[in-house]
């Protein structure tokens, strides 16, 4: 986000407009209550781009691995590539990553597949509890970094999604 040139924009004789900080605060408040995840405004050479990380993408209190001691909270999706605008569903806890509920059934998602908010994308097992992990964002799956059966640590990217 750029803020250069802002101080020259305002005419002191005009009714006072909200400050830049106030405008951004208002915009971000509005975004927080909506499903909008990205907003870009360009006016008089000033360009403001706000990006909201989707809220929780995992169970509210998934099973805690002992290493984390206690209920792990959901981890927000991470914007990991600004140019491509991909978001990663992150592991909410340390555990074993599974692409499917069983070896005999198709994986929850595959690269190239469209997903919708609330869709299960994988399972992470810890302490013999199998936690379905859902995405809160819709889009196209562009990568699934862990291998099936691989140990993942809390915060590791599980599925990368290009938002639609």
């Amino acid at each position: 986000m750029r803020s250069d040139g802002v101080s020259n924009r305002r005419d002191p004789w005009e009714p006072e407009e909200p400050s830049l900080v106030e405008q951004i605060t208002q915009l971000s408040d509005a975004m927080a209550g909506s499903s909008v995840t990205e907003l870009e405004i360009e006016e008089e050479g000033l360009k403001i781009r706000l990006q909201r990380r989707p809220m929780q993408v995992v169970p509210v209190a998934p099973s805690a691995a002992p290493a984390t001691s206690g209920a792990a909270k959901g981890t927000p999706a991470q914007a990991d590539d600004a140019a491509e605008m991909t978001l990663a569903v992150l592991a909410p806890l340390t555990g074993v990553f599974y692409t499917a509920s069983s070896p005999s059934v198709p994986p929850f998602v595959q690269v190239g597949q469209q997903v919708h908010p609330g869709q299960v994308v994988c399972i992470v097992e810890a302490m013999k509890v199998f936690n379905e992990i859902k995405t809160e964002i819709g889009g196209t799956v562009v990568a699934i970094p862990p291998k099936n059966g691989q140990l993942v640590k809390k915060g590791d990217p599980l599925v990368r999604i290009r938002p639609s």
Partner: peptide, 28 residues
């Protein structure tokens, strides 16, 4: 952690799966 044994052999198993509801509530 949760296989139930009788005389050293398994008679019961537990499988716990969790998910979240549309409202974000944890379900087991």
């Amino acid at each position: 952690p949760n296989d139930v044994l009788v005389d050293g052999r398994k008679v019961a198993g537990i499988l716990i799966e969790t998910t979240t509801t549309a409202a974000g509530r944890l379900a087991a």
